[in-house]
Amino acid sequence: MKAKIHVTLKQGILDPQGKAIEHALDSLGFQNAGNVRVGKYMEVDVNETDRAKADAQVKQMCEKLLANTVIEEYRYELG
């Protein structure tokens, strides 16, 4: 099973990279672009056929390593 994992900064956490990109978009003429947030996308193959087990494992991966839940949130799809 493949997990497709998105890790993003929580709302309210300053994202200096997002701000810099927003300014760049603005200077390119995209004045209607706003609130740019930069995140991470990861794919992980999980050698597990039981969907519930795979789900529990990916959740643990996110909690323990892939996201720092003080500042980040995560979501994933299993397929």
Partner: peptide, 10 residues
């Protein structure tokens, strides 16, 4: 306790 974010200046 806490975390480090990127410097505000990048």
């Amino acid at each position: 306790p806490g975390v480090m974010l990127r410097n505000t200046s990048l």
